[in-house]
Simulated assay, not measured.
Amino acid sequence: MSLCITGFLPDVFEDSSLKYELYVNDEFNEQIVALLGHKSVDEMAAGEWLLTADQVAQISRLIGEVIPSDLDIFIGVEAEA
């Protein structure tokens, strides 16, 4: 299973289309799961989780990718194809 980060415009906008999507390299799964306070990727598979600005910043530093700060950012688990 892979972690996927998605971004949408905040609720004040009527546009609910996907604005950002990033599949995280599996090598970061354990660190991200621990950072978010979950026990495993399987435990996270129960839904999609809204990230705080601090969590977004920490994950961004960890994976070395810029994640937009002007969007509502979620993280979820997707089955690998």
Rank of each mutant, 00 (worst) to 15 (best):
residue 50 L to F: 08
residue 48 E to R: 15
residue 21 E to Y: 10
residue 28 F to D: 03
residue 33 V to F: 01
residue 7 G to T: 09
residue 52 T to A: 09
residue 42 D to H: 09
residue 16 S to H: 14
residue 24 V to P: 01
residue 39 K to R: 15
residue 55 Q to P: 04
residue 43 E to C: 07
residue 76 G to V: 06
residue 44 M to Y: 01
residue 50 L to S: 06
residue 72 D to P: 10
residue 57 A to R: 13
residue 62 L to Y: 03
residue 58 Q to S: 08
residue 17 S to G: 11
residue 11 D to C: 11
residue 67 I to G: 09
residue 57 A to V: 13
residue 63 I to M: 07
residue 68 P to E: 12
residue 70 D to R: 14
residue 32 I to M: 00
residue 18 L to S: 08
residue 35 L to E: 01
residue 52 T to C: 02
residue 54 D to I: 10
residue 27 E to M: 12
residue 29 N to L: 02
residue 60 S to H: 05
residue 27 E to N: 11
residue 12 V to I: 15
residue 46 A to Q: 11
residue 9 L to S: 04
residue 31 Q to F: 02
residue 55 Q to Y: 04
residue 18 L to H: 09
residue 71 L to G: 13
residue 64 G to T: 05
residue 69 S to K: 15
residue 74 F to L: 14
residue 42 D to E: 15
residue 71 L to D: 14
residue 65 E to G: 03
residue 76 G to L: 10
residue 14 E to V: 06
residue 21 E to V: 13
residue 22 L to Q: 04
residue 30 E to W: 10
residue 6 T to W: 02
residue 61 R to C: 13
residue 69 S to P: 03
residue 8 F to G: 02
residue 4 C to K: 14
residue 14 E to L: 13
residue 24 V to Q: 02
residue 4 C to N: 14
residue 25 N to T: 04
residue 59 I to T: 03
residue 24 V to I: 11
residue 8 F to T: 05
residue 78 E to G: 13
residue 14 E to P: 05
residue 80 E to T: 09
residue 10 P to H: 10
residue 47 G to P: 01
residue 23 Y to Q: 09
residue 46 A to S: 13
residue 55 Q to T: 05
residue 42 D to S: 11
residue 32 I to Y: 00
residue 30 E to M: 12
residue 62 L to R: 05
residue 64 G to F: 06
residue 34 A to G: 04
residue 24 V to A: 08
residue 26 D to F: 00
residue 41 V to R: 02
residue 47 G to Q: 02
residue 34 A to T: 10
residue 29 N to G: 04
residue 34 A to F: 07
residue 23 Y to W: 12
residue 46 A to G: 13
residue 52 T to F: 04
residue 14 E to N: 11
residue 26 D to C: 03
residue 35 L to C: 08
residue 36 L to K: 00
residue 56 V to C: 05
residue 59 I to D: 00
residue 3 L to I: 03
residue 66 V to Q: 15
residue 62 L to N: 06
residue 10 P to I: 07
residue 6 T to F: 07
residue 51 L to P: 01
residue 58 Q to G: 00
residue 72 D to W: 11
residue 69 S to V: 15
residue 18 L to D: 08
residue 59 I to A: 00
residue 44 M to V: 01
residue 65 E to Q: 15
residue 10 P to M: 09
residue 10 P to E: 07
residue 33 V to H: 03
residue 29 N to K: 08
residue 21 E to L: 07
residue 64 G to C: 10
residue 18 L to M: 10
residue 26 D to E: 12
residue 56 V to W: 01
residue 21 E to A: 12
residue 26 D to T: 02
residue 28 F to S: 03
residue 37 G to N: 06
residue 22 L to C: 09
residue 56 V to M: 04
residue 52 T to Q: 02
residue 78 E to W: 08
residue 20 Y to C: 05
residue 61 R to Q: 15
residue 35 L to V: 02
residue 44 M to N: 00
residue 24 V to D: 01
residue 45 A to M: 06
residue 53 A to S: 15
residue 33 V to Y: 00
residue 47 G to L: 04
residue 28 F to A: 02
residue 66 V to C: 13
residue 29 N to S: 11
residue 38 H to T: 01
residue 80 E to S: 12
residue 42 D to R: 10
residue 74 F to G: 06
residue 15 D to W: 08
residue 62 L to I: 09
residue 18 L to R: 08
residue 3 L to Q: 00
